[in-house]
Amino acid sequence: MAADTTTHAPALLTFLLRLADDNLVLAQRLGAAISWMPDVEDDVAVANLCLDHLGQARNFYTYAGRVEGAGRTEDDLAMLRGEREMLNAVLVEQPNGDFAHTVVRQLFADAYQVPLYEALTASADPELAAIAAKAAKEARYHLRWSSTWAIRLGDGTDESHRRMQAAVDGLWSFTADLFATDGAEAELAAAGVAPDMDLIRARFDATVAEVLAEATLAVPTDTYQRIGGRTGYHTEHLGHLLPEMQSLYRAHPGAEW
């Protein structure tokens, strides 16, 4: 195992759980969106998004379990951690809402994950780089799906434009949490394991600005931002999502099906 993995194990574990939890919670939301999309084509599309995010979460959890070295499996990390232990950004736990909210939440998540994964392919940690290489391909497709719909709906009818702007305005205050850090990312960046999150933020801003401009949607100027997810302080929604997701595994630990 690479030297940086053992040197920075606590920071790497935190970072991996943030990556994994983002994907697991978003996958859970997208799974619940299946059959609620406007057409059957997009029911299939969100199912694909869901499974991609779940696969990414599994890779990050499995690696996190090895870095932790305490014998916890991917299932243990996903299904036996409570709300205060979950390190996902508050964006991904927000409800599906209408199709506009599902699309905009995905757009913001994709605009964050694409540059993050692309940067991680150059990580000094070869395992992290390998996971990111596969995830980056998936994230680029996700961004294509979400930006296509954002543009169609934002620059569509009066009603679709109104709903899209409402979703952008409603979800904007959860975007800064994607980049919130307690120092783990900076420590890993210094070791070449993780990228400089300021650079990821810059690419996120550029992508969002470009897509929203083409969608004739305004980037919110409201600067209030709700952060805390990265250190376990969540909005009220995660507390409802977790029991539904975890109840079976908690009732039947180690269950296989």
Partner: peptide, 20 residues
Amino acid sequence: SVHAPDAETAVLAARDVYTR
């Protein structure tokens, strides 16, 4: 076949439905 509002969206839908 797929339903879609325009050609670009139809390609995305086709990718999701027929090349999984």
